[in-house]
Deep mutational scan, measured.
Amino acid sequence: TTTLTYTDEEEARKAAEELKRRGITFTYTKRGGTWEIRIK
């Protein structure tokens, strides 16, 4: 499992869109002031 952490929502959203485009499965979690993208 790879976890990407972002403090900028815009960056996190761009990363999530890129992963979706590649067909990669991930979970997206907001934790306080950070956003976590966990790639399975």
Results as ranks from 00 to 15, higher is better:
residue 18 E to P: 01
residue 2 T to I: 15
residue 13 R to D: 05
residue 17 E to K: 09
residue 38 R to A: 12
residue 25 T to H: 14
residue 31 R to G: 06
residue 32 G to P: 04
residue 32 G to L: 06
residue 13 R to H: 08
residue 17 E to T: 08
residue 12 A to S: 05
residue 17 E to A: 13
residue 10 E to S: 13
residue 24 I to C: 07
residue 6 Y to P: 00
residue 40 K to C: 15
residue 20 K to S: 11
residue 39 I to L: 07
residue 26 F to A: 02
residue 4 L to D: 02
residue 19 L to V: 01
residue 5 T to A: 05
residue 22 R to W: 08
residue 20 K to A: 12
residue 35 W to K: 00
residue 8 D to I: 09
residue 16 A to Q: 04
residue 23 G to H: 04
residue 24 I to R: 02
residue 31 R to I: 15
residue 1 T to F: 14
residue 37 I to K: 00
residue 21 R to A: 12
residue 15 A to L: 05
residue 21 R to H: 06
residue 34 T to F: 15
residue 9 E to D: 03
residue 9 E to C: 07
residue 33 G to N: 15
residue 24 I to Y: 09
residue 1 T to A: 11
residue 40 K to Q: 14
residue 30 K to T: 06
residue 31 R to F: 11
residue 21 R to K: 11
residue 5 T to Y: 15
residue 4 L to P: 01
residue 27 T to C: 11
residue 29 T to P: 00
residue 37 I to E: 00
residue 17 E to L: 10
residue 40 K to A: 13
residue 14 K to I: 07
residue 40 K to G: 13
residue 18 E to M: 09
residue 28 Y to N: 02
residue 3 T to P: 03
residue 38 R to W: 07
residue 28 Y to K: 06
residue 10 E to P: 04
residue 18 E to I: 10
residue 3 T to S: 05
residue 5 T to H: 09
residue 18 E to V: 08
residue 13 R to W: 08
residue 7 T to M: 09
residue 32 G to T: 04
residue 19 L to E: 00
residue 3 T to I: 15
residue 14 K to W: 06
residue 33 G to F: 10
residue 13 R to F: 08
residue 3 T to H: 06
residue 18 E to F: 10
residue 23 G to E: 03
residue 23 G to P: 00
residue 7 T to L: 09
residue 28 Y to G: 02
residue 15 A to E: 04
residue 12 A to G: 04
residue 38 R to L: 12
residue 18 E to T: 08
residue 8 D to R: 07
residue 24 I to P: 00
residue 20 K to I: 12
residue 32 G to S: 06
residue 15 A to Y: 09
residue 14 K to V: 07
residue 39 I to K: 01
residue 37 I to R: 00
residue 23 G to A: 03
residue 2 T to N: 09
residue 27 T to V: 09
residue 25 T to A: 13
residue 24 I to E: 03
residue 13 R to S: 06
residue 22 R to F: 05
residue 40 K to E: 14
residue 27 T to A: 04
residue 28 Y to H: 03
residue 18 E to L: 09
residue 34 T to R: 13
residue 11 E to R: 05
residue 2 T to H: 12
residue 26 F to Q: 00
residue 25 T to D: 15
